[in-house]
């Protein structure tokens, strides 16, 4: 087990190295007009250095004066020492901006994940136990509709109905108009109120795949020999399903949910952007569209790490939960 984890970790480091290299090359190949624009702006300030000096200084500051490969190693060294530079778009250190915005995304994603689990697992199990019934058809169709719904369309419809027509919520933003006048509890409630629509969007859009996954795995387990044995033994159907079958369905479920935990930190780009919630998704969207290379570089590397971490966690969890894997 330990050897397996060590091997996987080493491999992850290698993959991460390649991924960050690809990202770095990509960002370096973009038209570098941002540095030039900035130098142009800085050089017009009164009593400033000439344009060429600014360009040279900025290039040196961002490691853009080196060739791509040495430049990558300088960047890598900086990143390894925790120095991600200053965001061009937000003019604060990348890490500072990141720590400001990450929590709201995690809270949003976390609540959405809990809701998803609460909806998807019971419904998925129901669909599987009553395969080909009307309920099964409805749940399967519902899950597929959820998967097929484009986030932006669904969010806009929600906004139109609940924010514009019914006026229950604000159209966008995280804080109400009178946020500053509220006390601590009021502030929290205000934020929670503003988070309702985004969380509903996130939940509905991603609940489908989890529901289908539960159903497929439950079906697989229900077809297994030990379930037949359990039934043959004369156990009640309830006991067969919730005691014998469900526990075995949990194995793949725990694996996939564990694997999706790091994903909570990657934020919800589309949903946050549509509802103008200053989470990591919206922030990085702004950074990326304005060509903020330091922030983009950080965000993309961070996403890659999260993906790797997710795979690693699900592999390890699989071995932890399923004794059969451990022996093999």
């Amino acid at each position: 087990m330990r050897n397996f984890i060590i091997k996987r970790l080493l491999l992850s480091v290698l993959i991460l190295f390649c991924v960050t290299f690809i990202i770095y090359v990509l960002l370096r190949c973009l038209p570098a007009s941002y540095v030039e624009n900035m130098a142009m702006r800085l050089s017009t300030a009164p009593g400033s250095k000439p344009y060429e000096e600014w360009v040279a200084q900025l290039n040196a500051q961002y490691g853009l004066d080196l060739d791509i490969i040495p430049g990558y190693f300088v960047q890598l060294k900086n990143m390894l020492t925790g120095n991600f530079g200053d965001s061009w778009r937000f003019t604060v250190p990348v890490i500072q901006k990141f720590s400001e915005v990450i929590w709201i995304s995690v809270i949003m994603g976390g609540i959405a994940l809990i809701l998803e689990l609460l909806i998807a697992i019971p419904l998925g199990i129901m669909a599987a136990t009553k395969q080909y019934s009307r309920a099964d058809y409805a749940i399967t169709a519902g899950a597929l509709v959820g998967i097929s719904l484009p986030t932006f369309f669904f969010a806009t419809i929600l906004k139109l109905i609940f924010a514009v027509k019914l006026k229950w919520f604000d159209v966008s933003g995280l804080m109400g108009r009178n946020y500053a006048q509220l006390d601590q509890l009021g502030k929290m409630l205000d934020m929670a109120h503003h988070l309702v629509l985004p969380i509903v969007t996130l939940t509905i859009v991603s609940v489908g795949s989890l529901m289908r996954y539960t159903r497929t795995n439950m079906l697989e387990v229900l077809n297994a020999d030990y379930i037949r044995t359990a039934r043959a033994k004369g156990l009640s159907e309830k006991k067969v399903i919730y005691h014998h079958a469900f526990r075995n369905t949990l194995i793949p479920l725990v694996t996939i949910v564990g694997g999706s935990l790091p994903g909570l930190f990657s934020g919800a780009l589309i949903t946050e952007t549509l509802f103008s919630i200053n989470g990591i998704g919206f922030t990085s969207y702004q950074a990326m569209t304005t060509g903020d290379i330091p922030f983009s570089m950080f965000y993309l590397s961070f996403m890659a790490i999260l993906t790797l971490l997710g795979n690693l966690i699900s592999d390890i969890l699989y071995a932890v939960v399923d004794p059969r894997v451990r022996i093999a």
């Binding site: 990326m288 965000y299 993309l300 890659a304």
Partner: peptide, 10 residues
Amino acid sequence: CVPSMPIIII
């Protein structure tokens, strides 16, 4: 591992 959506946005 390459995050595709952000890359396409960039």
